[in-house]
């Protein structure tokens, strides 16, 4: 019944400009929104039975090491706090994922909250992506300290973000940002990306 209703992502209006910045950089940086990802916030006792139940239900554990991410089965579980995670999945799977998580935790004390529309995601990739983000985050993104599988909540420019290093060979990051801050952050990224534009020949 919802299918015929048009959805608007926070950065839908930025798609052309993000693509243009990617082209202008000659691939040095790649910027794109990854809209409508499913995101469910999970709060529970990491040492309690609910954590095990969630691992069985999702097929991946909720990581207990701070600032790490576990991926598998099309899902990613990001550590947000000692009792808080963000489970990210493909678009359109929120109700199913929320139900699986609620079923798993059962009667134990846990909070499961659909926050899919709370944040949108950006892909920031390319060989200069680390340099681009270094304009705005005090986090050390060097592979020695922020390699694949690492994630963090931090500040980028003046917005709070969740940053995750893609566990792929190519350098790149996912950036989750509150919907109301997304336009600001996109403007900021586009401005920062000007530096990496190939000079007109």
């Amino acid at each position: 019944m919802v299918e015929h209703v048009e959805k608007h992502s926070p950065l839908g209006g930025f798609a052309a400009r993000l693509a243009a910045a990617t082209r202008a950089s000659g691939g040095a940086v790649r910027l794109a929104e990854l809209p409508f990802l499913t995101q469910v916030n999970v709060r529970l006792d990491a040492k309690g039975p609910a954590a095990d139940a969630v691992r069985l239900a999702l097929g991946i554990p909720l990581p207990v090491a701070p600032n790490t991410m576990v991926r598998g089965g099309g899902l990613a579980a990001l550590w947000l706090g000692p009792d808080e995670w963000l489970v990210v999945g493909p678009p359109g799977t929120a109700s199913g994922l929320e139900a699986r998580l609620r079923g798993a935790v059962g009667g134990t004390h846990a909070a499961v909250t659909d926050v899919s529309a709370q944040r949108t995601a950006l892909l920031v990739a390319g060989p200069r992506s680390r340099d681009l983000l270094a304009h705005g985050t005090s986090l050390d993104l060097h592979p020695r300290s922020f390699g694949p599988g690492r994630c963090a909540q931090t500040l980028l420019a003046r917005a709070q973000v969740v940053l995750a290093a893609r566990d792929e060979r190519r350098p790149g990051f996912w950036l989750l940002v509150r919907s109301s801050f997304a336009g600001y952050l996109a403007e900021w990224l586009l401005d920062a990306a000007v530096e990496y534009a190939e000079p007109p020949s």
Partner: peptide, 18 residues
């Protein structure tokens, strides 16, 4: 630095801004 003009401070908008 970059924190001037429209980027001087985050401008938050709702989903209805357009």
């Amino acid at each position: 630095g970059r924190n001037r003009g429209v980027l001087h401070d985050p401008v938050r908008v709702t989903a209805l801004h357009d």
